[in-house]
């Protein structure tokens, strides 16, 4: 038996994103952010997007390019502390921002990728983060209902991919990527190295290829991927 080859041109893969789509973008700060796919989305110019990402990178980097091009209507995130430009857009009302506790965002995405409707959690009870959320009591404990999140497209950066889409991640570049890679109708991967099936040992696979739709090889790594000197 032979596994399908999912290699694809970046512009063709990102060209599938439509106006109004919800797009999950992996990464926590620089590690794991798919800078090349984001640049392709800027070129492609789909608008009125809902972006789900842990953070908004830093001014002039990654997701900030999508904010500057006016493509993002809504941002579901956990923390914008390193991007004063994003905070300015939020404060002026130019974008709608929904903050989630970081592990709750992860769980909502995990639930979305696992065929579940959501999760029950007591995180944030007694704070303004609980306002407006459905409450349930179970086994004597009060929980908030945290609805699952899914997306039309997920943009993922992998260290290595095989042509079927089995993925590995480097160090802390893993973060939200394996979760998002399960939670979107179309999963597009940029990989630093693309190899033939079998070259990534089955035991080493961190995202199974069945979750992945398109694999693209990064020709080179732009300056955005490098160590940030602050």
């Amino acid at each position: 038996m032979k596994l399908r080859d999912k290699r694809c041109d970046i512009a063709a893969a990102v060209g599938r994103i439509k106006d109004g789509d919800t797009v999950m973008i992996g990464g926590f700060g620089v590690p794991g952010t798919p800078f090349t796919l984001i640049q392709a989305l800027v070129q492609q110019d789909a608008r009125n997007l809902t972006v789900i990402k842990n953070d908004a990178n830093e001014p002039g980097m990654g997701v900030d390019h999508l904010l500057r091009s006016g493509q993002v209507a809504r941002l579901i995130t956990t923390h914008l502390g390193l991007n004063s430009h994003a905070i300015g857009l939020m404060n002026s009302g130019a974008i709608d921002v929904e903050f989630n506790p970081q592990g709750i965002l992860a769980e909502r995405i995990r639930a979305g990728g696992s065929g579940l409707g959501g999760v029950l959690s007591d995180i944030g009870i007694g704070t303004e983060l609980a306002e407006g959320k459905q409450v349930v009591k179970m086994q004597g404990t009060t929980y908030l209902v945290e609805p699952a999140l899914r997306a039309d497209v997920a943009l993922i950066h992998a260290d290595r991919a095989d042509t079927f889409g089995n993925l590995t991640y480097a160090a802390t570049a893993q973060n939200f990527s394996p979760l998002m890679a399960m939670a979107a109708a179309c999963v597009i991967v940029e990989a630093e190295t693309v190899v033939l099936p079998g070259e990534i040992a089955a035991n080493a696979v961190q995202t199974a290829g069945v979750f992945v739709d398109h694999v693209t090889q990064l020709e080179n790594l732009s300056e955005e991927y490098a160590v940030v000197r602050r």
């Binding site: 995130t77 506790p101 995180i123």
Partner: peptide, 14 residues
């Protein structure tokens, strides 16, 4: 100052 809550709630609560 409203950069978002990050992981702070879960650390503080748990």
């Amino acid at each position: 100052f409203s950069p978002g809550v990050g992981g702070g709630v879960e650390l503080a609560q748990k």
